[in-house]
Nucleic acid binder design. Structure first.
Lengths: 151, 151
DNA sequence: CACAAGTCGTTAGCATGGCTAACAAATGGT
DNA sequence: ACCATTTGTTAGCCATGCTAACGACTTGTG
């Protein structure tokens, strides 16, 4: 790719260009492992928020997942039908719907996360320790970047 | 997230766990910029392969994008209807269908890529140079990892 | 050469997941 | 008491993933 050389080094645009490609391919590779869980991707992602972040109202869940409320309504309905999450009314405000994972939802999530992460861990084990150190430091930078962007 | 501390440092599982989250969020952030192009995500991704990698047969494009042939048939049909790609027959083997970008497809892709990448570039400009150096070295490792995984 | 087997793309039909528009129910401020 | 706001749902559109089945073509084999 010709423009790659033109944006090498640590110049912001070249870095952004390469991390764009890296993120796409990494996500795609990781997602392949998800099919084994039998839970479709949008549901798995929402379930992950519920399992690792605790119960949310439907609207908060929608904002967290960057989707509109109607979309989240359907995702939650799907999770409910699969027995992985539950809706609960709020005692004070009858407009609110709390969504929480079921015990089975927690189990499914834990298995899915292991499968997904284990594949990448395999690849990382093949790297020399020095390379893993580089990735470790970069992870700190990338996570800080994420927080700065409001995630 | 409690398990984060338990998998810190450069141990492969902990690294994989963090890069899982990083890749998801980075992809999501980048993708938000794509809506401005008016080209839906699967079409934009296939178009990118065509623009940066040249013409492909439909089957090769499907394998590259990790989707089944029927799905790629529809994506290509969509690109054709938008005037962004063309089908061409092979002269030797009448079963094959070559897919290539149109000039307009190239223009649209270039604009989309700029919009997508520019957002991340903005964030990177706010970092100290040392952090960008870290990301630059990590990018080399991650791209090598990608190639090793057959991408 | 003829025919069987394999390859490539398409069609058909299903499910998931994104959106906007429109709405019902509940809350809260005036 | 009423009106504006907030919250979630319904309805209906489109895009994108899959499998099954098929048609057209090529290739290998007798």
């Amino acid at each position: 790719m010709g423009s790659l050389e033109a944006h090498g080094g640590a110049d912001p645009f070249g870095l952004a260009f390469r991390y764009n490609s890296i993120a796409i391919h990494l996500t795609r590779r990781l997602r392949e492992a998800d099919t084994s869980s039998g839970v479709p991707p949008a549901r798995l992602s929402a379930l992950s928020v519920l399992v690792f972040g605790g119960r949310h109202t439907l609207g908060d869940l929608a904002r967290r997942e960057r989707v509109t409320p109607p979309t989240m309504t359907r995702i939650v309905t799907g999770l409910e039908q699969m027995g992985l999450a539950r809706r609960r009314p709020d005692e004070r405000d009858a407009r609110l719907v709390w969504v929480e994972p079921t015990p089975e939802g927690r189990e499914v999530m834990e298995r899915a996360r292991l499968a997904r992460v284990e594949r990448l861990a395999e690849e990382l084990r093949a790297l020399p320790e020095a390379d893993r150190q580089v990735l470790d430091r970069a992870a700190q930078v990338l996570l800080a970047l994420e927080r700065a962007a409001g995630y």
